[in-house]
């Protein structure tokens, strides 16, 4: 658990983070969102003490981070940044194994761990372990960046706009992968972005920041249905609020089990937003719902989307 208590960060006369308090439970996927300069990155950098707060306290599992030795603190926190920061003179294997190397793992174990993580991030270990970063696409580099952050199996992962430089397709793929990694390994993730769709897709809780202050911390549904003020309302977007709400729920939660439907099939894990989009595109008011193997599960009607 990460506890941020009345934390303020001043740079000279300007205040980057202003009396911010936030508790992030273990296993939570917390997304900090806000406009540029809202102080989001500073919050992350104070958690691993790359920035030292001017006042207030940050505790991880009850331990004050400013009292822990820096190296020890940072080696148990994964850190992923938008600019990736792979070491260009090291191979992928050595980059991924950077923290294990610092921790003094045996070479064979480090390499095996690097291979395991690359495979988990859909990079064939045989093809990538001995390549250099500049030989990789940006998307592949960021996969390596994530693998590097995960190498020593930290409980906490800090991600600072990790997908900001990626094209939309790579971005979505990596969002799905990081969501999967977080779920299956019970990591606590603190993720900074300025993209509300990304926040809604990933977060179990969203913390909205504006001018250094925490405006609202709530689940995606709460944020959409009860925005705290106009700033949050603008951030979530007034025009497509309904679509965003639909994006939060999966088809399987609203479908009519067992009912046959003539329409084109939709995966049960798809969002209601996708269901609506398909109905509009296909000009129909019902769709068949199938499981991952394509077996029919039921149907979803246009009316089901309107139920609250």
């Amino acid at each position: 658990m990460i506890e941020i208590e009345h934390v303020t960060q001043r740079y000279g006369a300007s205040v980057a983070v202003d009396d911010l308090s936030l508790e992030i439970a273990a296993g939570e996927f917390c997304v900090i969102i806000g406009t540029s300069g809202a102080g989001k990155s500073t919050v992350l950098r104070m958690i691993n003490q790359l920035a030292r707060q001017s006042s207030g306290a940050i505790r991880i599992d009850g331990e004050d981070v400013s009292r822990l030795p820096l190296a020890q603190l940072r080696r148990r926190i994964g850190y992923v940044i938008q600019s990736i920061g792979l070491f260009p003179h090291w191979t992928v294997a050595r980059n991924v194994g950077a923290v294990p190397e610092l921790l003094g793992w045996p070479k064979a174990r480090t390499r095996a761990r690097a291979a395991e993580l690359l495979a988990a991030l859909k990079l064939a270990p045989g093809a990538f372990l001995d390549r250099y970063p500049h030989e990789l696409s940006i998307g592949q580099q960021q996969r390596v960046g994530i693998a590097r952050a995960l190498a020593a199996d930290p409980d906490i992962l800090l991600m600072d706009e990790p997908f900001g430089a990626l094209d939309p397709i790579t971005r979505q793929a990596l969002q799905a992968e990081i969501a999967e990694i977080q779920r299956s390994n019970r990591k606590t993730v603190v993720f900074v972005t300025h993209d509300m769709d990304e926040a809604l897709r990933l977060a179990s809780r969203i913390a909205v920041m504006d001018q250094g202050q925490l405006v609202q911390a709530a689940t995606p549904l709460e944020l959409l249905s009860a925005p705290a003020n106009d700033f949050v309302r603008d951030l979530v977007g007034r025009d497509d609020l309904g679509l965003k709400l639909l994006g939060l729920a999966a088809v399987e939660r609203r479908m009519r089990p067992g009912e046959p439907a003539p329409g084109p099939p939709l995966a049960a894990g798809a969002s209601l937003r996708e269901a609506l989009s398909r109905m509009v595109a296909e000009g129909c008011d019902r769709l068949a719902v199938v499981d991952a193997e394509g077996r029919p599960l039921g149907a979803i009607h246009l009316a089901d989307l309107l139920r609250r």
Binding site: A71, R74, R148
Partner: peptide
Amino acid sequence: VPATLRDAARGMGMSEGAILRKVELPL
């Protein structure tokens, strides 16, 4: 040497000496 590399190195818990030896001087 890009500041982001120093940042990444620091963020993973490399000491300043290690950053100089392993990252900055080789680059």
